[in-house]
Design a binder for these strands. Structure first.
Lengths: 213, 213, 213, 213
DNA sequence: AATGAATGAGCATTCATTCAT
DNA sequence: AATGAATGAATGCTCATTCAT
């Protein structure tokens, strides 16, 4: 039978739900097809009626999770009118809500660290595209902010967007790895946000003194 | 023969070089002891005369690479008198030199993503310590900068250090994953550095307007 | 597939038969899973569909053999009404039938001599329980014999049972090791039995003269 | 160099002492040549200057230990004039002193259970001879006892000697395996000895009643 | 479509023995 | 005689994938 067909409605989704649970808990390498089949309550062989192989199944699960995550963040964006407000929200989100995707983040990490090595497959491309999508979104917000006078004129939006992406990914990385535990109080977060937004808004910055001492 | 001894001068180093090559190329999990032995041109069993097991070998390789990297950055630190200059240098380094440790970064990623899940082994502790060491160093520089009047009074050094660490790790992450390719021109870097340093130096920041619009 | 199930009727038994053959021939340590698989005519991996690991397989084989042996001896017990008769039968059995379990005995020996050194695993417990079960049975027979007046009053049943067990184990040991070959004639056996039973029945024993000469 | 030579006086003995210690503690299979070399304070390769291989070394060690043990028991024998007294002593010894040879007993067990399977080598012959030597000694004592009127006339000395050997080996077996722990009080031992000696001394035994009920 | 028994390649580790120095 | 580094065969176990039913 061809994989990817879906003869029994909902079965595919059921398997993916089970797989998500197991992958999240154990990671890709440590997850066995047996465990997924058991979690889904079907026979191991049946998995191969719906997915070509383990990697394929992981890919589908992963894609689905990423889609959900993106949808949620999109909602967030549209709830603020100003660029500054949007950025504020997204930073807030990074600090407080991103932990929800800890499991997903760990899977991304594992993927990059192992699977991505061997083949520059579809998933790698997918992840790169996703990254670019995000970066462009941030960049658009920054450009909008400059246009509206919220951010300083002459801001290098591409560079700033890149830095913000790196920072957000760095924050998520630390979150996923349980570094900086306990540093999640309000004052801390406010300081961080202020630092980032300061860099965008303050137009009178004379630059650090004696930068090349 | 006891592991950890080095009766044949250079042999240990030769093995580590071979192992580094194979680990870098395939990652930890995908690397077989056979492959390392073959690369080193010795019998598989001989590996165990110099290293306790695969994890130990990896650990030594890893420690060596980290040692080199830390030494290099330490050099960098001491070459600037002012806090601002030190930070400037470390940011410079992150943007330009850190790529040398791409392979190392990938291995760390793999470790965090897989091995770190199961056990809190020695390597995990080592990595956390390394992280803390860095964070404290940054924090000390910031505190020094505040004392010298380079940075704004009232700066939350811990929070700022944490953010900077996250940013640096985010930068390295993107580097390791070959994201942001081509965005390494001087103007770009200057903008990024300015953003960060602005957040530390500008004392008159009134905060972003209409933050909660 | 879960170990311990038996989806293909007789397959489990077939494997155990093959394993018994190989274990008997080579002992536990010298037996490889490959050899068992080859003897059973299946793939090595298939063994693990029916048994958790080598030790488990051995345990099952062992338990089966012990079960057969115990069943057989139980039959023997019930065929005599008097305590004296029961003991007579069990001694008979030890001298004549126990050789059937020579291979089993050798495996027990190997287990005690090697595995038992390191861990107090399940098999060790099982063996100790089996031993106690036997000892209690003997003791019960002796007590019954005393009650019925078959054996001398004041007999230390526990001590006697222990001695009898030691003797029986010693007999089996010699049997397993092929010592005393050829000393299995009727007169010999009768003499041995008489010696043991005499010790239990003669109530007027004055003790050996000049015991501490 | 030829093994078995002894160019450095005492070195051979030193190795054997070290080997004895390690073999006793871990058994044959679990003992590595490294461990023996370490215990002896010499290089692993040097072992092969004095012993052909691991098995040979074990054989020599074993032979030496057996020799010592036999010597000690021989001393014991000669200290009593009467057959009854000799037997009494040897039984005493079995119950109280044999534990000293627990390690040796365990090695014998392991040997029989593993090494003896593969090759009917020299050691197996040696052990059989030793066994026969003992059996003949017991038999001689019994015959002497009959001649002196200590034991009942018509005693089947061969059969009795065999039973006694089996019993002694059974006792040692239980001792080695730590069965019957705690049953070593004086009354217990006295009862056991009485049972055995009763079988030899009482001449008026009418045999057990209703033996074949 | 579903099953699940069978497969077999793949791998880290141990250790007795050798031999060049 | 002594060394000890090098060797490499040997083995239990996993698990993704297949395929006959």
């Amino acid at each position: 039978m061809k994989a990817d067909a879906e003869p029994v409605p909902g079965k595919r989704e059921a398997i993916m739900a089970a797989a998500t649970k197991v992958f999240d808990g154990r990671g890709f390498a440590a997850t066995t097809m047996d465990a997924i089949a058991a979690e889904a309550g079907i026979a191991k062989g049946s998995l191969y009626n719906y997915f070509k192989n383990k990697e394929d199944l992981f890919y589908q699960v992963f894609e689905h999770a990423v889609g959900q995550s993106e949808f949620e963040v999109d909602q967030m964006f549209s709830q603020s009118a100003t660029a500054c407000g949007k950025l504020d929200r997204i930073l807030d989100y990074s600090f407080t809500e991103m932990s929800k995707y800890k499991a997903l983040g760990r899977l991304v990490l594992e993927f990059w660290a192992t699977a991505a090595r061997k083949a520059q497959g579809e998933l790698a491309l997918q992840l790169r595209e996703m990254h670019l999508r995000w970066q462009r979104r941030i960049e658009a917000i920054l450009a909008e902010g400059v246009r509206r006078g919220e951010f300083r004129a002459g801001l290098d939006c591409a560079a700033a967007a890149s830095l913000i992406m790196q920072t957000l990914d760095g924050i998520q990385l630390h979150d996923v790895l349980d570094l900086d535990i306990g540093a999640r109080d309000a004052a801390y977060l406010a300081a961080l946000k202020r630092m980032i937004l300061d860099g965008l808004t303050n137009r009178a910055s004379g630059g650090p003194p004696e930068m090349r001492a």
